[in-house]
Design a protein around this nucleic acid. Sequence first.
DNA 1: CGATTAACGGGACCCTGGTTCCGTTAACGC
DNA 2: GCGTTAACGGAACCAGGGTCCCGTTAATCG
Lengths: 208, 208
Amino acid sequence: MTTAPDAGAVPGTVRPGGRTARVREAVLRAAGDALAERGFAHLDLAEVARRAGVGKTTVYRRWGTVTALLADLLDDMAEQSEPRVEVGSLLSELEANATLVRRTLTDSRQGALFKAVIAAATSDAHAAQALHRFYAARVAEWAPCVRQAAERGEVPADTDPEQVVRAVSAPLYYQLLTTGTPLDQAAAERAARAAYEAARAGAFRTGR
Amino acid sequence: MTTAPDAGAVPGTVRPGGRTARVREAVLRAAGDALAERGFAHLDLAEVARRAGVGKTTVYRRWGTVTALLADLLDDMAEQSEPRVEVGSLLSELEANATLVRRTLTDSRQGALFKAVIAAATSDAHAAQALHRFYAARVAEWAPCVRQAAERGEVPADTDPEQVVRAVSAPLYYQLLTTGTPLDQAAAERAARAAYEAARAGAFRTGR
DNA sequence: CGATTAACGGGACCCTGGTTCCGTTAACGC
DNA sequence: GCGTTAACGGAACCAGGGTCCCGTTAATCG
């Protein structure tokens, strides 16, 4: 009787180098392609495997479900998203953020991924967690611009920075999901402006 | 050779009375129950048929897909949603709207339905259209309160009423989908307040 | 460089969501 | 009422997404 390997371990953790890494990369790329071309509903792990030049058994063993694959894709994307650049005025920083969000949602690849993850998150806890992680990181990245604006006196001192950042994205996502209207630059500017004015008026103050 | 019935017709349109109506009602109720209990991902038309005490063939013949059934459910719900009651001040009307939206999204039955339809809409055109119809109707229902406020001079005269109404809902949906935080009443009030302040400051003016 | 074994790949298999067939029930028009 | 036939319901059937088995390839360690 030889020592049995840990049956509970996720494949890819013990020997993550070389082949395993190449497989992961190829599968994530293929999944992104398939998603952008055919959409979430038609996403088929066997097809992803074929596109990636990989056995379908491998995809099922490593990820198991479509939602798990999406979560991995999102984590992968989170690592390579652009950092905020400091500008100096709150309104222009919020506009920069809104423009970035708009570009992301409009991009055929990233937009499709977001829609898919959002759909998956409504019924799958793992996908939901991946989504929450993603937004927590993004919000944390942009919150400082509000904090600095508070120090400059542009907005009330007890303004909740995260609320302001979320307020910029919210209308863009809402429009994407609930209307057929395309997300244009005017929508992005409007979103930034609205969040800015609301913050200045004290709508996002924490202490009561 | 007898006259062939129109093969392209949707079942239930020629003899919509009695049995057909009862079946539709039972299936929609069962679908709503199943959705609330087991979630979108586990929604199975055969199970819906069983719950409704109806043959699964019938469900497939009448609706065909899960998304079509969801669209029908949403249309059904749209007919019975509460009308707005006039209050008098814009802020309190927007708060009433925010509270209504919050209650809807928080309700286990309706909330599950919304999440499901949103998920379906990201990849199915029919579900997306049903969703757009629903929101267009809801927004049209509430837009007048902004118009009246504009006449009273509470907000700039060229404020776009629909933008304001959408701005109230957006943060609530955004929070529901992208964070794990529960939707509390404070969130509803904040959403209303933010939309109100932004509108007053002219963030939703149409002419440039 | 060689041994060990994690991870991969092909193919057979299986199971369940969805379709088809056809007999039965009950709307609707007269 | 009565006849016509739309719509329903049960059961057999089909297909393709997901699993299992087992032989092959190549990371990792010494």
